[in-house]
């Protein structure tokens, strides 16, 4: 499954990873898999203001992924 990263997360692990995740895997499980393979991303991925996105919509930790989903992990945003 393609997983994309932005900001400090992209700096830590790259802009995109291929992570093996079975259909039905939740966002929380996917996050744990990414952290297991890339422990340097743990702090930013577990930040309470970090978000996961599928199809340009914010999804919660319990969201069950389908085979065609592309997940994006966003660290806390900051404009202005």
């Amino acid at each position: 499954m393609k997983v994309a990263f932005y900001g400090r997360l992209a700096e830590a692990v790259g802009t995109e990873l291929d992570i093996e995740a079975p259909p039905g895997c939740s966002i929380a499980e996917l996050r744990n898999k990414v952290i297991a393979e890339h422990p340097q991303a743990e702090e930013a991925l577990r930040n309470r203001r970090a978000r996961a996105c599928v199809g340009d919509a914010i999804v919660h930790d319990s969201y069950a992924l389908t085979a065609t989903d592309r997940v994006e992990f966003l660290p806390p945003v900051s404009g202005g």
Partner: peptide, 20 residues
């Protein structure tokens, strides 16, 4: 400041620092 979707870095004497 808190919801516009940007990731901001300062580049300078301290190197590169993410700003949240």
């Amino acid at each position: 400041k808190t919801e516009a979707v940007f990731w901001k870095r300062e580049i300078g004497d301290a190197g590169s620092e993410w700003i949240e």
